[in-house]
Amino acid sequence: MNIVSPGFTGRRRGGTELPPGQYLTHEFPVLSAGPTPHVRTEHWEFTVTTESGEMYRWDWPALMALPAEEITKDIHCVTRWSKLQTTWKGVSLDTLLADVETGADYAMAHSYGGYTTNLPLEDLLDGQSWIAYEYDDEPLDPEHGGPARLLVPHLYFWKSAKWVRGLVLSDTEDLGFWETAGYHEYGDPWKEQRYAGD
């Protein structure tokens, strides 16, 4: 017979919880919808275009000159893997957008190679997103989106556009590459917003 000692409440192993429908991986799977662009940092640039057409531009030295942050976050891919405590270095979008004059509600991220993904602008602000250029203390590999990728870890990882080259801000919500083909326009892993209508 089991004897339950009343004072013993147990201990949750690791204390980690995954979003619904996800499994834990220790690998870093590479997903790609096209050939991997190899963009050299001397040719790299990142632009922000506002709803009035004004463009702000950073080249690689300008990005490196901005204050960088060490980021440790869990990431969740819509193909159901989650990876915990991933470590990155990058520049907060709060820093990049600080002097950008805009009243836009939406952003479309554009990548080298043509990929796009849409996000509400507010999801890029308040310490929620970065332009990341190091993973695990190493320069970001091209297969993981280097030289720099968008990192928005609170949404499914397809929103963290690899090879990011710019944001286009807009008053209206347009849909990106996967969002026009059946994936959810927002993609909150904790609400399991995988597909349109979820």
Partner: peptide, 26 residues
Amino acid sequence: YADAPGLVARCVGCDSVLLRIVTTPN
């Protein structure tokens, strides 16, 4: 390209997307 949230077929001439297939539960 099939290691992706959907299947993406691209042109051998210019790499543009020719066709995409996404299968959802419904």
